[in-house]
Design a protein around this nucleic acid. Structure first.
Lengths: 248, 248
DNA sequence: GCTCGTATGTGCGATATCACACTTAACGAG
DNA sequence: CTCGTTAAGTGTGATATCGCACATACGAGC
């Protein structure tokens, strides 16, 4: 099987050709199996990961073991922002929510690239701002919206990062992500199934009526999507694209 | 009255002498009165603000008017991270929670400084990472902790950014920040007063027993404080300080 | 001192989520 | 085909927060 194109990752795809040319040879493809941890809270991060078809959840775990997802990252972004933000570690953990592949780059290769003062840092920072937006929206959503609405939001966020309309995920795991009880997810998912929006059985969820799902979701999904699209439009810094949509 | 020292702001204070020397003359002191808005959702940001004794809340407002605070910024940080993250706007609003002063710098002066490739960007990015931590912790706190605990956390976060033990703030406003009902804050504050931890009347709250307050707070306060201290230790990039605590 | 606006206190029913216990159902391994 | 494991469904009572209505209390200004 041929390796996936690094350009499947939107951050890598945003780079101008000459930067891509010198960076892509240094990328190493890695498999990220379902359930694997990319980093744990407090780990010194040595690599930055650019997912192609994998989806990773950023989770925050409390002392008593309770947790909540603060963001979802797929081929739209990168894992390991603390590498370039300067902290080297973060208090969150990154868990593979949907198995797949990612390209990784060593910390030192990334720093070498920054030394050249190209566009890499700018692209990464713009992505980080969209990540901040997602986290802020999650905070408000946790406060004000029902489990039903949040499940819709969560399904949509995952769906956007997958090729097809179905995902492998038990209700138990979804409950962990949302920071609610498993029974709450069962109830919410039951409603969606009765409405004909999704179908599921034993860890496989298929979305049948996506427009309806968007309708039932809280505004948080659309808000995050809008801001993400604004901050990282397709091929941001690639000159051949006629509308750069940006004055740098 | 003499102008406050820019070094009251921890970010400015972290800069090495030569960078401070060329940057400080360009700072302009501005008064930030209680209740003022520093920026609204979607505003193009033209200045970055370095608070000295003012405290600013970053709020996220939903369509129906419900809101929640996602972070608090005082002399430990800056307002306007989207200026250097590249987004130019953000979907949040910044409201002055405690009146005071801040130094502001124009977007172009900041960009000129970045061109010199000194430490400014690094300091700002490290601060931004601590802001991310605060937002993530807020998201989890909103999900898992009681109003009582969150009130303690909020009081501590504000207290750390004030010179004295008392703050001007009605329960109504606190409720808006936390995204809960005013009555919930009344009840929680009543408990704290009965325990002798705080005293309050008509918009003035005085903390009497801070250790007890920390004890009653959820772990979120300590977690944020620890990470903030780690990311922005006093005088991070000032060479005269013997322990830089950092290998850049 | 009186008055009025605002801050705070309280009570009560509605609702959502939780915690726990248990049942039912699907699938895979032998 | 059967058994064991795991996913999903259900029921009940406890708790927290909400939404609303109203009572009280403080303090600035006349």
């Amino acid at each position: 099987m041929a390796d996936p194109d690094p350009r499947e990752n939107h951050v890598l795809d945003a780079l101008p050709p000459e930067e891509a040319a010198r960076l892509f040879p240094q990328l190493k493809l890695v498999k990220l199996p379902l359930g694997a941890s990319v980093y744990e809270s407090g780990d010194v991060q040595r690599f930055i990961y650019f997912p192609t078809n994998a989806i990773i959840s950023l989770l925050y775990v409390l002392k008593d073991g309770a947790s909540a997802e603060i963001a979802v990252v797929g081929n739209d972004g990168v894992i390991g922002v603390s590498l370039f933000m300067g902290g080297e570690t973060t208090p969150s953990r990154a868990v593979v929510q949907s198995g797949g592949f990612a390209y990784k780059l060593t910390s030192s290769a990334l720093k070498d690239e920054f030394e050249r003062h190209g566009h890499m840092l700018q692209v990464l920072l713009r992505y980080t701002q969209s990540l901040i937006t997602q986290m802020a929206q999650t905070a408000v959503c946790n406060r004000h919206h029902s489990v039903d609405q949040q499940l819709c939001r969560w399904l949509l966020l995952s769906l956007d990062r997958l090729p097809g309309p179905s995902l492998s995920m038990t209700q138990e795991l979804i409950a962990n992500m949302l920071g609610v009880r498993r029974e709450g997810v069962t109830t919410a998912a039951g409603k969606l199934q009765r409405l004909g929006v999704i179908r599921y059985s034993r860890g496989r969820i298929t979305v049948i009526d996506r427009p309806k799902l968007e309708e039932l979701s809280c505004e948080c999904y659309a808000a995050v999507k809008k801001e993400t699209d604004r901050l990282l439009p397709y091929a941001l810094y690639r000159p051949e694209v006629t509308e750069p949509a940006l004055a740098i």
